[in-house]
Design a protein around this nucleic acid. Sequence first.
DNA 1: CAAATGATTGTTTGG
DNA 2: CCAAACAATCATTTG
Length: 408
Amino acid sequence: MFAALSHTFHTPSLGDEEFEIPPITPPPEMESGLGLSEVDSPFPAMPEPPGPHRGPLIPQFPPQSLDLPSITISRNMMDQEGMTVNNGQPVNVGSGHLRQYPPNPAMVMKSIISMNSTNGMIARNQLTTINQSQLNTQNLNMAGPNITHTSPSPPASKSATPSPSSSINEDDQDDGNRVIGEKRPAPIDPTKKPKTPKKKKKKDPNEPQKPVSAYALFFRDTQAAIKGQNPNATFGEVSKIVASMWDGLGEEQKQVYKSKTEAAKKEYLKALAAYRASLVSKAAAESAEAQTIRSVQQTLASTSLSPGLVLSSPLNQHPSMSPASQALQRAIAPKPLQMRLGGNQIVTSVTVSHQNMSGGIPPQLLGQMGSGAVNRSDGMEDSVKSSRRTSERLAIFQRVQTASQTLS
DNA sequence: CAAATGATTGTTTGG
DNA sequence: CCAAACAATCATTTG
C-alpha cells in the first residue's frame, strides 16, 4: 500500500541525511502552481468535505493516521541502533533520500505532490521516507550550523521560561525583564526595551477553550504517521518533520486546516461572548441581590427588628458592589479583539456584541443569561423586570428572615 | 486612533 | 512539565 502511494524524494546535495517524505495521502489538491490535477476534486471549494472518512486510497488531505503516508525517518543505520529497521516499520536505507529541514521542505513537498498527482508516477513504488541524519543526537547538535534554528540558549532557556507554575501569581512583579532576557539574552539594550511587563492574565478555568490552530490540527493528524514510521523519533524530531511538511504544504491544503480553525474560532467567539454575558448576568444578579438585601436590611433596621444581625452580613460591607462583582465586571469588560489574518492584517472588533449573542448562542446559554445586565436593556420589558425584582426581593427577604430566626 | 511589531501563550504527543 | 515548531493572541509602541 504505502509503497505504491509513497514517493521517494531525493536530494542529492546532502549526503548525510535522507529524508523521505511519503506523500501525505494524496494531496488534497495539486499545488497551486501546477494545474495538473486530474484528480476529481482538486479544489475543495469547501474547506472540508462533509464526508467523514474516505477510503484510504482516496486522496484525502487530512492525513489519517491510517492512510498517512508512511514517513520513515532513518538515520544512519550504522550509528543508530534504535531507529533501525526493527521499529516494526521497514526503513528504506538505500532508497532514502536526503532532505534537510532548513533548506526547503516546500520544494520537496511540492515535488512529491506533483509526482503523486501524476498517476503514472505513483504506480512506481514511491516510498517516502524521511531520513535525517540530523535525527541523531549528535547530528542534532552538530546540525546546528546549518539549522541554527534560533536557539540562543539551548536547553537551559526552556527551564528559564516562565514556567506557569512558578509564575503562578506574580503577575505584578512580573519581571517582564526576565522573560525578555531569556528570549533575547544578547540584546540587553537599555535603549530599546521598554520592557513592557505584560502581566500574564490569569485564565478563567471556566472560560471556553480556545480553538486549536491550523498547525496544531495538522500536527495532530500527521504526527501519528510519522511516529508510526519512526517509533523512536523524539518529539522534537517529529516536530521538525511536521514543520517541514507543513511548510511544504500548499496554501490550499493549509487552507483546509485554516478553515477548520476558522470555524472553530467562530464557535469559540460565540461561546466566549456567551460566557462573558453569563458573567455579566451573574454580576448583575449579584449586585441586584446585594442591593435588595441592603434595602431589606434597611427595612428591617427601620423596623428595629434585629439590626446587629443584619449588619453582619457580608454583602453589607460595600455600599456599591462586592469585590467579586467588581472583578467580574473587569473580566467582562468588552475588549477589542485583535486578529492577525494571514500576513499582517489586523482586524479589530468588539468581542461582545448584542448581535452576536442573540445570533448563535445555544439555547441553554441564552437561558443562563436571561437576567443579564448586558441584554437586559434590550430584551426585557420594564414590567417583567419589576416583577422579577419584586419576586427576588421577596425571596431574599425570606432568606434574611430565616437567617435571623436561626441565629436568634 | 490605527497600524505595526514584539512578546507571550497555547496548541500538538508522549514520557 | 518539557521537548520543537508554529499560530494566535495580547500589549505596547509608533506614526
